[in-house]
């Protein structure tokens, strides 16, 4: 399920004083099985971009090919596309509506016209993937915690068995433990289902942990695109876009400034911990 975006432009409310050029000449290729983090300041166009990928927004100009099929062409099968490219929005409150968690997750497969048995199988599978046990099945989605609501929302999309999963700010607004849980779950899901994952966030920390590739959006254009280590070596440019490198990378940079021979591509706490311990061990050895 490769996604090819070429010369994508999108203008909001054309011809009014509120006109806004949300996307300008975006060219991207996302290959099968990638875990891509899309990062950018508020209003950088990242949400607009992902809404094009399952046909919710029609580009003002440009084309998008999913799996070799031009989805911007007239008469494109959007229902099928939305099943293949699953999009989970930021707020689960925007999609939960059924009386029970089970029924809510079943909404997507039901719209696909599957049989009762297939729906049941998919709902259970999806709940399993996001770590919701059977006891949640008959609970109302409205009485769950914020993190649990998000899991239900993600399961609701996973139940359609998409090949590409797009998550818009899946961890925003959660407390640290809820955030931790959901991010771990997404990474586990990626490894288990081997799906292409696009992860939108404004938090460098969250993106740095999971993504193998980072796309930085700024004012409707792709400002940077590369491996996390490449992106984070441009701290100054990132700051000029209202973004920042992860705190732990900053720490490593200030350690390096003080003459400590630390790696310059540290962007997770685990790695920082291992490197610092190694440096300390070396120092001890040298002292002996």
């Amino acid at each position: 399920m490769a996604i090819e975006i070429s010369n994508l432009n999108y203008v909001y409310m054309a011809g009014s004083p509120f006109e806004k050029h949300a996307l300008q000449n975006v060219n991207l290729t996302i290959s099968d099985g990638e875990f891509v983090g899309i990062i950018g300041h508020t209003g950088s166009g990242k949400s607009t971009l992902i809404q094009h990928l399952n046909g919710l927004l029609k580009p003002t100009s440009g084309t998008i090919c999913v799996d070799g099929v031009d989805i911007t062409a007239k008469g494109a099968d959007l229902k099928k596309l939305r099943q293949k490219v699953g999009l989970v929005f930021q707020y689960p409150e925007h999609q939960l509506f059924e009386e029970t968690v089970y029924k809510d997750i079943a909404y997507g497969p039901k719209n696909m016209g599957l049989t009762q048995d297939e729906i049941d199988e998919r709902v259970r599978e999806a709940m399993n993937y996001v770590g919701l046990t059977d006891k949640y099945m008959n609970r109302s989605p409205f009485e769950l915690s914020g993190g649990q609501k998000r899991r239900v929302a993600i399961a609701g999309v996973l139940a359609m068995r998409p090949d590409v999963l797009i998550l818009d700010e899946p961890a925003a607004g959660l407390d640290p433990s809820g955030r931790e849980e959901i991010l771990t779950q997404i990474k586990a899901l990626y490894l288990a289902r081997k799906m292409t994952v696009l992860f939108v966030s404004h938090s460098m920390e969250d993106v740095a942990r999971a993504a193998g590739r980072i796309i930085v959006m700024n004012r409707g254009t792709v400002a940077m695109d590369g491996k996390p280590s490449e992106i984070f070596s441009h701290a100054k440019e990132l700051r000029s876009m209202g973004l920042d490198v992860p705190q732990i990378t900053q720490l490593a940079a200030s350690l390096a400034e003080r003459g400590i021979p630390i790696d310059n591509n540290i962007y997770t706490i685990e790695r920082a911990k291992a490197t610092i311990l190694m440096l300390l061990a070396q120092k001890e050895k040298g002292a002996k």
Binding site: Q51, N54, L56, K79, R82, Q83, G86, L87, V88, F89, Y91, H94, Q95, Y107, G108, N111, M112, G156, V157, M160
Partner: peptide, 16 residues
Amino acid sequence: EETDKIMKAQKARGAD
């Protein structure tokens, strides 16, 4: 705006 967002979220789940 909210209606628009909700419609999009449900369309993403195959709503028609």
